[in-house]
C-alpha cells in the first residue's frame, strides 16, 4: 500500500438524500465511492489524489433493474454480475452483457458497477461503446432535482463529463427499440489477453437492414481517443448503402477521421488504427453473414 491512509476520509451517508446533501454542501469536495474497483487500484499505488469520499455502495435507491415496454432502467450500482445474469439484458442487449463478462475478474464483476464505469470516464472502459450504440440515457440527481441526458456526448474530453459537481449518476436507461430483432449487433474487445485485460480497442456496432440496404447504423469505439467515441459520421455514411467493397472503403475513410488512437503501454496508434478499420470491415461483412 503506497498511500498514506490517515490522509483519507470516507463517509457513509444513511440515504441518497443525505448523500446528495453532502455533495451539495461543498461541491467537488466529496466524491462518491461505489464498488471501488478503480479507486482501490489507485489507492494501492499511492496515486489516488482526491482524499475525501463517501460510500454509496449501500444505497438501495441506486440499485435494481426495471423493465417497462419502452425501456430497461438500470440502477447506477448495478454490478457487472447482475447485468449479465438478467434475462432481458442477455436477450436484448447482449453487447453490454459481453462487455460486462469481459471486464476484470469475477471479484471485480461482483463489485464493479455500471455507474462507476461511466463516472470513472476511462476511454478504455468496455461498457460505454455498447451503451452509446444502444442510445443509453443517464439520470443525474442532485439536491436540486433530477434530469435525464443522452449518454452520447457525456464525455467531453479526457476524464471530463457533462455533469455538475453536486450531481450523481443514479440510473441508466436503455431504449428497447434500439436493440430489437431487426438490429444486427457486433461487439469485439481486443484486449491484451482473453480475460482480465484492458482494451487495446473496443468496438461496438449495430445496424438495421432493409431490402439488402443499411437503413441505420451506430458505431462506437473505446481506447482509440481521449474519450469513448461515437463514430456518427462513419455510421451516417452507411445509411442507404449495400455492403460492398466501396461501402467498406468509404466507411473506413470516415473512421480514420473520427478516431485518434495513440501509442501507450498497451499498444500502438498504428495497430489501433489498422485493427479498428479491420473490425469495421468485419462488422459490415457480418451484416451479410
Amino acid at each position: 500500500m503506497r498511500a498514506y491512509l490517515p490522509a483519507y476520509e470516507l463517509q457513509r451517508p444513511a440515504s441518497l438524500d443525505e448523500a446528495l446533501r453532502l455533495l451539495a454542501s461543498a461541491p467537488g469536495e466529496w466524491r462518491p465511492f461505489a464498488g471501488g474497483t478503480d479507486l482501490m487500484v489507485l489507492l494501492e499505488a499511492g496515486k489516488l489524489e482526491h482524499r475525501k469520499f463517501f460510500s454509496i455502495w449501500h444505497l438501495d435507491e441506486l440499485r435494481g433493474i426495471e423493465e417497462t415496454i419502452e425501456h430497461i432502467t438500470l440502477g447506477a450500482l448495478t454490478t457487472y454480475t447482475e447485468l449479465q445474469s438478467n434475462e432481458t439484458m442477455r436477450r436484448e442487449f447482449p453487447m453490454l452483457c459481453v462487455a460486462a463478462s469481459e471486464t476484470g475478474a469475477i471479484a471485480i464483476q461482483n463489485r464493479g458497477t455500471l455507474g462507476g464505469n461511466i463516472a470513472n470516464a476511462s476511454p478504455a472502459a468496455d461498457s460505454p461503446p455498447a451503451l452509446i450504440v444502444y442510445g443509453a440515457e443517464l439520470e443525474l440527481v442532485s439536491a436540486r432535482g433530477a434530469r435525464w441526458i443522452a449518454y452520447e456526448g457525456f464525455h467531453t474530453a479526457y476524464k471530463q463529463m457533462r455533469m455538475e459537481p453536486d450531481e450523481l449518476i443514479s440510473r441508466i436507461r436503455l431504449p428497447r427499440a434500439s436493440a430489437g430483432d431487426n438490429w444486427k449487433q457486433y461487439y469485439r474487445k481486443v484486449g491484451t489477453r482473453k480475460a482480465q485485460a484492458i482494451s487495446k480497442i473496443c468496438f461496438a456496432g449495430a445496424a438495421r437492414l432493409g431490402d439488402g440496404q443499411i437503413e441505420e447504423a451506430r458505431i462506437s469505439m473505446g481506447s482509440v481517443a481521449p474519450t469513448v467515441v461515437s463514430c456518427t459520421k462513419t455510421a451516417s455514411i452507411l445509411r442507404g448503402r449495400r455492403v460492398n467493397k466501396e461501402t467498406i472503403g468509404a466507411a473506413q475513410g470516415e473512421m480514420k477521421k473520427e478516431i485518434v488512437p495513440i501509442d501507450d503501454l498497451r499498444s500502438t496508434a498504428d495497430y489501433r488504427l489498422q485493427v479498428s478499420l479491420n473490425l469495421l470491415e468485419d462488422f459490415l461483412l457480418s451484416l451479410e453473414r
Binding site: V41, A45, T192, R193, K194, A195, Q196, A197, I198, L265, R266
Partner: peptide, 27 residues
C-alpha cells in the same frame, strides 16, 4: 506471446499486473 517488459530510460514501466501481461487459464 504475452510477457513484454516495457523499458523507458532503463526502467520497467509496466511494473503492474494490469499491464505486464501473463496468460490466464483462458489463454
Amino acid at each position: 506471446l504475452f510477457e513484454n517488459v516495457v523499458w523507458r530510460g532503463g526502467r520497467m514501466i509496466n511494473n503492474q499486473m494490469t499491464n505486464y501481461i501473463i496468460p490466464t487459464t483462458a489463454d
